[in-house]
Design a protein around this nucleic acid. Structure first.
Lengths: 239, 239
DNA sequence: TCAGTTTATTAGTGTAAACTAACTGTCGGT
DNA sequence: ACCGACAGTTAGTTTACACTAATAAACTGA
């Protein structure tokens, strides 16, 4: 009686919600999310991920190919998008209504997204006028679970003058990744394309908001997948 | 090495925070909080309480007298008041800024109080103008951990016309408690004293907001400890 | 006073989620 | 074609917190 009559749809735990979110982000470009990528994003040991992956695929939230990685099922994707909606609305609310700034807001939203009710999220969304973008410029999924697909382009193709958010780095090579991190070119960073040399030349960019200049060679620029950011202000507080 | 070098002040868990809060409420009138009272408030089984009580007294948050009950230590009281501050500020914020009503707000605050940072709470407090009372009229502890001691008086002593919140029922007698619950006279309820007969006669009250009348005999009225409620509106939304 | 009831505690179990240590699979390079 | 490096998995342990069943202490009433 116990196993069969047990609650068919138990609410997701905090951890499950976190796993689904990072799997969504890691596999959003179409591939598999690997165990060690998930582990490093969540700052847990790889065996913890293996254990959770087992549970999540048992409950139908992900698809697991051993030694390859995982992808979300339709149901897992729905839950992931629900969390992302919560997170982004929270970030926007905290910056617009409570004077949070850009950097501090993430950690707060990260904790709150597991605790707020759907009712509260929708009230915040109303108070904010059903916003479409969070303070980082990321699109907010609808309550129905739809999200504007950010069309990514490699930095090498971006027009001069464009404001971009770096979203994805298309390599696993440690040396390249280390170099990019040193340059401050990591996912989430905002940049403006200031110049490009002809004949497959390098791209010059400046970081936002610091304004620091960077020169990115053609090969690297092809690995930096970016999203064009709308130029209007998204709720950065007056201070 | 492991036991000794282990984190000396680990953050409190959700459960611990909940236990401290109910122990605070149950022992606020000076007595002990008993195992079964704690269990029924938290809706857990008594053995779960025994287990937690052991852990809490090991970590110095409570004082336990076996088969008698528990009381908070100074440290436990500090933590309990911190949670109560969070809870009450959240309730006020949700009612004043997001259109929550009186009854719905408690459950939401109950979940959020474990997730919000101190920074967020203080920002909410600022946005609300450093309020002193929550939407139920309960005093909000200061960030420093001080709380206005609600001076309780028995209903039998309350002046006619006073608006009161019933805070504590001074008996454990099941028959009396059952009767009072039937009459809707339970802690948290608001009443207005409408009349009192002379020579130790009964007190007539009406319930707020329903307006239902009740007659309370002298003996019972002496058991009903009440707090006078300031008459101004505390943020009940326009709807 | 002493039996019966109520309340509290102990003992043992289960689940979620982390960990370390040990083992296995995959893939790139010689 | 194999062999080592590294990624992934299995096994077993730990901590927090709940549960049920069994036992012990305290209270109550005839």
């Amino acid at each position: 009686m116990s196993a069969l009559t047990r609650d068919a749809n138990p609410p997701l735990t905090r951890s499950v919600e976190d796993y689904l979110k990072v799997i969504y982000h890691l596999s959003s470009q179409g591939g598999f999310a690997t165990t060690s990528d998930i582990a490093s994003r969540l700052e847990v040991a790889p065996p913890s991920v293996s254990g959770m992956v087992k549970r999540l695929s048992d409950t139908g939230l992900i698809e697991h190919v051993p030694y390859r990685g995982v992808q979300l099922t339709a149901q897992g994707r729905r839950e992931a998008l629900r969390m992302i909606r919560r997170h982004r609305i929270l970030e926007l609310f905290l910056t617009q209504q409570l004077g949070y700034d850009w950097d501090g807001v993430h950690a707060e939203a990260e904790r709150l997204e597991h605790a707020v009710s759907d009712v509260l999220i929708e009230r915040m969304a109303s108070a904010l006028g059903q916003p479409q973008y969070d303070p980082h410029g990321d699109p907010i999924p609808t309550a129905a679970g739809e999200i504007e697909e950010a069309e990514l382009m490699p930095l090498s193709d971006a027009p001069v003058g464009a404001k971009l958010e770096l979203r994805q780095v298309g390599t696993q090579d440690a040396a390249r990744l280390r170099y990019l991190a040193e340059q401050g070119l990591t996912p989430g960073v905002l940049i403006v394309v200031s110049d490009r040399q002809p004949f497959n030349g390098p791209t010059a960019v400046s970081l936002v908001p610091s304004g620091d200049p960077r020169i990115v060679g053609r090969d690297l620029a092809q690995l930096l997948w970016c999203r064009e950011v709308p130029v209007e202000d998204h709720g950065r507080p007056a201070a």
